[in-house]
Structures are given as structure tokens and as C-alpha cells.
Design a protein around this nucleic acid. Structure first.
Length: 598
RNA sequence: GGGGGUGUAGCUCAGUUGGUUAGAGCGCCAGCCUGUCACGUUGGAGGCCGCGGGUUCGAGUCCCGUCACCCUCGCCA
């Protein structure tokens, strides 16, 4: 080793020892007679002192040293003179009195200083990611990620899971998300697809008798990006045989508890609350509700039906609903302009408008349509639980639109009014998802989760009679209103699987071609099985209290799925295309210029 | 694909109603400084105002287009 210690570990007990440290120059403070160099590595920072009595070579090296140079410093650990200790630094009671400096590498002036207080824009950070990753905050994020993944692996290992790797090159399945395709060189015109998840492989591992499988699995989905979505992401993917939903849920609850304790020192009470999908939509308008605050949705349809207000009557007569939320004490907090903004939010979410009502100190309603509601005012207030000073927001529309609009409003108000502690962590399960949803384009059925999800045993008959009412043995883990994982018990008999395929519009022929191996395997002794996949990037983001998934991924992509550091994706040599039998139809764009120094 | 935001020095940003030579802090370079730790201090260098077009006597500022990045809707079985 070039060093005896890291830059984060020297303490007064080492005073007098001869040490060597290696690291980057964080800052130089040249006082002419004495020069201070803060040397930084991933462990911390240590002050190196070059005094006037240092030899001329060492003095010259200290004078020459610049930001981000890589040095090996040799010297003696000294106590800092009284009054010059730095309590902000873990190593702040000592310093290394330098006797020799070896410049391991010089560095060009960095585009930005990793130690600077001003955070550069994300474009700059991504283009110079190696510098960005020197920042303590980013290092902390990746350490956190490493710790969480270790907890996950330990947890599963202790429970008898076997870690199996599954292929990155697989077969494209047109259902679900768009695939990333890889052309075959040996079979022109054929393509591999990168896995959206190891779903079928892990089911086959159950059929092979491994009983408990786990993998930290890279997954790929070629869909548009978001603050919490990347085209390649990592899941803790696991599957278990001879289990019911409660067994899988139990394994994950143990992991939640353990992670919360080890990472945050938080004691999570088990079992976690469970809500059904239907209850979630009714109370929160969303299948991944944020339970850190209230603002629950209240159904006002029966009352509204008694009013003469055309907006309400019209929605109800069209088969819709009238629903609202009470915002306690908010009547005085929102100006007309802000209420117009809330209305715009509701409209953006699909509603035709937003009815807002304030309860005045005397208990009367005020608001643009208050006069239309005189007949039911008392009833509405009672149903919503509104009192003087409260604000009520009401939407009349189809059930889906009221869900969307009120969910969006609820989320916004929760954050804007500071209704929860940003450090609070809330874990819950959402269960009993519908098996099927209507495809808005074709009008046919589409799988709410995926086509291998088992229906609740008591709902099997619905597959024939009423698919919309059929509920799945599905469970989503929700953390602070974010979907942090989702799983199901799978279909383990071929007859049910074939029936579900048929419902989804997959003909027997198509099923045989694409999923023949699965159907064969199901007929060759498939155990009852089920599992779950947890979004590791999201877990780290949520446990780290971060807003962007990019901050927990070492080398993430931009919103247009490009890598600003390497320039990927990029055009390839014509020769490569010929080898692959691939012709580009769109005229190739000139390669994007790479950043200076990149 | 739709909606919104941003783009000015290496970095973070300011830039008024369209007006002469585009500013600040940090960083960089040089001088001074023996106890600083966001060192201090003096001076200096550094600009395709994202890019292209237009309006105007005159554009960082107004208009049109375009590109990049961010947020978001659609999408994400």
C-alpha cells in the first residue's frame, strides 16, 4: 500500500507516529510561511501542514499543488496547537506534519470543485460524473446503496434463498413495456431483448425445484424517463415455492423492518397496514397512496344527487360520482388566485372543473357555486367533517377522473401545506388488484400486473363470467406514496394460464410460440409459487430522503436516455451494421459533440 | 407525442422600459501574508449571452424556429 492510513482515520491516539496518506487536494491554504493542504479521500479529510522548516523539495511541491492533484504525503501525526483544532472535521484534533510530498498525479483545473458549496447544474455533473462522484453527498448515496443491497442479500441468504443469474439476452415479449433490442449477428433479422424483469426465468427456477431464488437483477424498459424512472434499473427479484401471499409479504416485512432499523434507526411495527386496491381508490384515488397525511377522499354522491346543481346532477346521471376532500383550516390560506391554480391542477388531471367551498366563521358556505348548494350545505359539511375555517374541494365526474383529480390535489396540498414530516417513513401494502384493465386503445382486456398473475381462488369463475370483477393475488409495497415493489402469486397450472392468455387476446397459437416453454414447464410438475420484485434504486432514494433516482445511480441517463459522459447512444461503424444485417432507415444524426475535457 | 421551466465567464447567478464598453461571488493566474480550515488581502486574465433566422437606427432583452437539460401528462404488463 502506498499509504499507512486513510484520510479519515487519524485521531489523537496516533500523535507522534510516522504516517503516509494518499488522496486528492481538496483545498490549499498558503500562508507563505506555513502551507495547509486538506487531503481528501473517500474516508474523509485530513489537514497536512508544511512548515517553514520543511526541505525545499517538499516546500516546492506544496506550493505547486493544485485542486484535485493526487498526492502521497508522508509525515508525523501532530496535535494541533491549542485553539486551532477543527471540531467540524473528524480528524480535526490532529494534523500531519509533512516531511515529504510525492505527486502521484497532477490534475487540470476541475470544471467544478467537488468540495464547493454551490452544486453545479445536473448537465455539468453528468458530463463530468467522475468529478461529481467525488462529492461527499454522492459518495454517501452510493455507500447507502451498498449497505441496503448488503442487507437485502444477507436477509435473503439467511432465509435460504439461492442467488441465480438469469440471461440479459432473452426473447422479446410485445406485452408490457417497450423492449431494448439487440440484433443477432449469427441470425440476421432476429433480435434478442434485454429483460424487463427476470419474471419467466425465476418461475422456471421454481419449476426446477430451487424453492427460493433471489437476484439483484438489472432490468431494462424503453419507456420515457422521470425523476424516479431510468431505462435501466435494478430490482431485488425473488421467488418462492409452496407459498401464499402472506409468506412473501412476511419475508419483505422482515426486510423492511431490518432496513429501517439498520439504516435509519427506526422501529417499524409489523405487520404493515394493508389496504385493498378498491379501498385505496375510494379513499385516496390512487393505488400507491401516501399515508403520511390525511386529506382522505369522501364520497358525496348520494347527497349531491339531491341537489339541483347541474354540474353534480349531470355527472351522476352520466354514471359518475361526486367526491371531495376537506382541507382543514385552509379557508384563509388560499387566495382566489391560488384556488384558480388548484382548479387548473384538477383540469390538467382531466376534471372539467373544481368546486371549492370555504366554511365561514358563522358556518355558512362561501365560494362561486355556494348558492347552488344551499339545500345540501349542511349535509355536505357533515359528510366532509368540515367546520369553520375549513376548505372543501369537490370534483364531479367519472370515478376515474375524480380519482385522478383528487389524488393530484391531495399530493400537492400535502406537500404545499407541510402536512407531514419529510423525514417520516410510511410503509404499507396494497393488495387485491384487479386482474384486468380495459385497454383504452383496443378496448380489450390487458393484464393489470402481468399475464402470469394468479386470480384469487374464489374469483376463478370470474375469468369466464366477469373479468372486471376478478381480483389477483397481488401485493404492492408502498413507501411514502411511491411504489417500492410489487409481486404476485403466479399461475401454476397450464389450464388457468391458457385461459388468461386467451382473455388477454393471446391466441393459443401465439401463446405456444412465445410462451410454449412456460406452458410445457407448467405441465411438468410446477409447484405453487409466487414472488416479488423491489425497486432497489427507489428504496435507496426513499431511505436516503432524495428526490431523484439519478442521485443513487453511479452513471445514470438523462431524460432522453442519453449518457452525457460517454455520448451513448451513438452511431456505429457501417461495418458493424453490415455484420448484423441491420440497415438504418432514418438518416444518421451527426454525433453529439462531447463536452470539453470529456 | 403534449404541457411547463431553464440556458449569460470554468462553476453558481444578476442583468430594469430594447440603448453606448454585459456584471457579481467562487474558481483560475500573479504579488503580499507563520496557524488557516469557505484563510485573508492586492491586482489580473477570462464572454458565440445555447444555436439559426427575423423585427429594429440599435437585441442578452421582442418575435419565429431549433437544440440541450429539468419537472410533468401520455407511456411504464
Amino acid at each position: 500500500m502506498l499509504r499507512t492510513h486513510t484520510c479519515g482515520e487519524l485521531r489523537p491516539d496516533r500523535i507522534g507516529s510516522q504516517v503516509s496518506l494518499c488522496g486528492w487536494v481538496d483545498r490549499v491554504r498558503d500562508h507563505k510561511g506555513v502551507i495547509f493542504i486538506d487531503l481528501r479521500d473517500r474516508w474523509g479529510r485530513t489537514q497536512v501542514v508544511v512548515g517553514p522548516d520543511a526541505d525545499s523539495t517538499t516546500l516546492a511541491a506544496a506550493r505547486a499543488a493544485r485542486s484535485e492533484w493526487v498526492l502521497r504525503v508522508t509525515g508525523t501525526v501532530g496535535a494541533r496547537p491549542e485553539g486551532t483544532t477543527n471540531p467540524k472535521l473528524a480528524t480535526g484534533a490532529v494534523e500531519v506534519v509533512c516531511t515529504a510530498i510525492e505527486v502521484l498525479n497532477e490534475a487540470e483545473t476541475p470544471v467544478f470543485q467537488p468540495g464547493a458549496t454551490d452544486l453545479p447544474g445536473e448537465e455539468v455533473r453528468l458530463a463530468h460524473r467522475w468529478l461529481d462522484l467525488r462529492r461527499a453527498a454522492m459518495q454517501d448515496n452510493l455507500f447507502l446503496r451498498s449497505r441496503i443491497v448488503k442487507i437485502m442479500r444477507d436477509h435473503c441468504d439467511e432465509l435460504g434463498f439461492i442467488d441465480v443469474e438469469t440471461p440479459m439476452l432473452g426473447r422479446s415479449t410485445p406485452e408490457g413495456a417497450r423492449d431494448f433490442l439487440v440484433p443477432s449477428r449469427l441470425d440476421h433479422g432476429s433480435f434478442f431483448a434485454l429483460p424487463q424483469s427476470p419474471q419467466l426465468y425465476k418461475q422456471l427456477l421454481m419449476m426446477a425445484g430451487f424453492d427460493r431464488y433471489v437476484q439483484v437483477a438489472k432490468c431494462f424498459r424503453d419507456e420515457d424517463l422521470r425523476a424516479d424512472r431510468q431505462p435501466e434499473f435494478t430490482q431485488l427479484d425473488l421467488e418462492m415455492s409452496f407459498v401464499e401471499a402472506d409468506d412473501v409479504i412476511g419475508v419483505i416485512e422482515g426486510l423492511v423492518r431490518r432496513t429501517a432499523r439498520e439504516i435509519l434507526g427506526l422501529d417499524v411495527a409489523l405487520p404493515l397496514p394493508r389496504l385493498t386496491y378498491d379501498e385505496c381508490m375510494e379513499r385516496f384515488g390512487h393505488d400507491a397512496p401516501d399515508l403520511r397525511y390525511g386529506l382522505e377522499i369522501v364520497d358525496l354522491t348520494p347527497l349531491a344527487a339531491e341537489s339541483e346543481f347541474r354540474v353534480f346532477r349531470g355527472a351522476i346521471e352520466a354514471g359518475g360520482r361526486v367526491r371531495g376532500i376537506r382541507v382543514p383550516g385552509a379557508a384563509g390560506r388560499f387566495s382566489r388566485k391560488e384556488l384558480d391554480e388548484l382548479t387548473a391542477v384538477a383540469v390538467e388531471a382531466g376534471a372539467k372543473g373544481l368546486v371549492w367551498l370555504k366554511v365561514e366563521p358563522d358556518g355558512s358556505w362561501s365560494g362561486p357555486v355556494a348558492k347552488n348548494l344551499t339545500g345540501i350545505a349542511a349535509g355536505l359539511q357533515e359528510r366532509l367533517g368540515c367546520g369553520p375555517g375549513d376548505l372543501a374541494l369537490v370534483v364531479a365526474d367519472s370515478f376515474e377522473v375524480t380519482c385522478k383529480a383528487l389524488h393530484t390535489l391531495r399530493k400537492r396540498l400535502g406537500a404545499e401545506l407541510g402536512l407531514y414530516d419529510p423525514k417520516a417513513m410510511n410503509f404499507s401494502w396494497v393488495v387485491d388488484f384487479p386482474m384486468f384493465a380495459r385497454d383504452t386503445e383496443s378496448g380489450g382486456w390487458t393484464a393489470m400486473h402481468h399475464p402470469f398473475t394468479a386470480p384469487k381462488p374464489e374469483h376463478l369463475a370470474f375469468l369466464d363470467s366477469d373479468p372486471a370483477s376478478c381480483r389477483a393475488v397481488a401485493y404492492d409495497l408502498v413507501i411514502n406514496g411511491s411504489e417500492a415493489g410489487g409481486g404476485t402469486i403466479r399461475i401454476h397450472d397450464s389450464a388457468t394460464q391458457e385461459k388468461v392468455f386467451k382473455l388477454l387476446g393471446i391466441t393459443a397459437e401465439m401463446a405456444r410460440e412465445r410462451f410454449g416453454f412456460l406452458l410445457d414447464a407448467l405441465r411438468s410438475g410446477a409447484p405453487p409459487h409466487g414472488g416479488i420484485a423491489l425497486g432497489i434504486d427507489r428504496w435507496v432514494m426513499l431511505f436516503g430522503g432524495l428526490d431523484s433516482i439519478r442521485d443513487v445511480i453511479a452513471f445514470p441517463k438523462t431524460q432522453k436516455a442519453s449518457d452525457l459522459m460517454t455520448g451513448a447512444p451513438a452511431a456505429v461503424e457501417p461495418k458493424q451494421l453490415v455484420e448484423l444485417g441491420v440497415r438504418v432507415v432514418a438518416p444518421p444524426k451527426p454525433a453529439a459533440p462531447r463536452p470539453e475535457g470529456g
